[in-house]
Structures are given as C-alpha cells and as structure tokens.
Simulated scan of single mutants.
Amino acid sequence: MKFAEFVDRYGATDRRRYLIGLLKNELDHIVAQGWLYRAFVFGSLVNSDKDEPGDIDVLLCISKPFGADFWRKLTASEDIHIKGCQLAPNFDSEARTVPPLRSCHGVEEMVRLFNESTKNTEEDIEISADQCVEMTL
C-alpha cells in the first residue's frame, strides 16, 4: 500500500505517525541511493488498535548495485526494528554491461528468513505473511 494510504489506515495517533515517519525516513534514504526495496510492516502497529504501540517492526529487502555501500539504519532510535536482507546483483564477469538490480524478496521469503533467524535466539517469535502489510512510498 502507498505511504499516504498506510498513514490514513494506521496513523491514527501521534505515536503511530511518529513510528511510520521513522520508516519513511529510512525508505526515503534508500530511494535516494537509487536502490530498490520492499518493506513489510508487522507487529502491533498493523495488527492491533493500540494507540501507543511500542515500536514499528519491519521486514526490509534492499537491492543495490554491485559494489554499493551497505545500507545502515539512519535513526538511532530503538523505536524501529528492522530485519533486513541486502541483495547485490548477480555478478557476471563476462557481461559487458552493468548487471541489473535483482528483484527484492516477496513477503513469503522475507517471513521465512525472519522465522529462521529467530529460531536460534531466546525470542519466541514466529510470524506469517498474513500479519504483514507492504508499504511503499
């Protein structure tokens, strides 16, 4: 869903709009680099009617050109929790052109990666694709 629609649907309070703004800042920065992304929001912001959710939880896949710097979260705030996946294009040394950016993972793959990553932690978290909302600028 587009940013304006996302704010209309999930930004009913100042706290919710603040959290959504943190994500928008990150996505603006990614777009400014010329990178592709897919962002899936989950957790209480999109799955509850809490006026004051504690944070915003995001699955973020970024595709960037070969050799590009790694994405680093802009904000130092712990109010945004991002589980990221960064993709460089498939490099072909025989190619005479710049390889295209890879397509970002969809929600099913991002959820699978997230659930695998939490198995080796003390967090007992597992999510499903239907708990995620894709947000685009």
Rank of each mutant, 00 (worst) to 15 (best):
M1W: 08
K2G: 14
F3G: 10
A4W: 07
A4Y: 10
A4M: 11
E5H: 13
F6E: 03
F6Y: 06
D8G: 14
D8H: 12
R9W: 07
A12K: 15
A12I: 03
A12C: 09
R15D: 01
R16A: 02
R17I: 05
Y18A: 10
Y18I: 04
L19T: 00
G21R: 06
L22D: 01
L23I: 01
L23C: 06
K24R: 15
N25K: 14
N25A: 14
L27K: 06
H29S: 14
V31D: 13
A32V: 03
Q33M: 14
Q33K: 15
Q33G: 13
Q33T: 08
G34S: 07
G34W: 02
L36Y: 08
Y37Q: 04
F42R: 00
L45V: 00
V46W: 05
N47W: 00
S48Q: 10
D49Y: 11
D49E: 15
E52Y: 06
P53T: 01
P53E: 01
G54P: 08
G54T: 02
G54R: 04
D55H: 02
D55E: 04
D55R: 00
D57T: 01
L59N: 00
L60R: 05
L60F: 09
I62C: 07
K64A: 15
P65R: 01
F66D: 12
F66W: 12
G67C: 06
R72L: 14
K73I: 01
L74F: 06
L74E: 07
T75C: 10
S77N: 11
E78W: 07
E78S: 15
D79P: 05
I80M: 00
G84Y: 09
G84E: 13
L87R: 04
A88F: 09
A88W: 05
A88D: 08
P89G: 08
D92S: 13
S93D: 12
E94F: 15
E94Y: 13
R96K: 13
R96L: 15
T97A: 13
V98Q: 15
P99W: 02
P100F: 04
L101H: 05
L101D: 02
L101A: 04
L101S: 04
S103L: 11
C104A: 09
H105W: 07
E109V: 14
V111C: 03
R112M: 12
L113I: 03
L113E: 02
L113H: 05
F114A: 05
F114M: 05
N115S: 10
E116C: 11
S117P: 08
T118S: 10
K119A: 10
K119N: 09
T121Q: 06
E122K: 12
E123C: 12
D124W: 10
D124Y: 09
E126L: 09
E126R: 12
E126W: 08
Q131R: 14
C132N: 08
C132F: 02
V133S: 03
V133N: 00
E134C: 12
E134T: 10
M135Y: 09
T136M: 13
L137T: 12
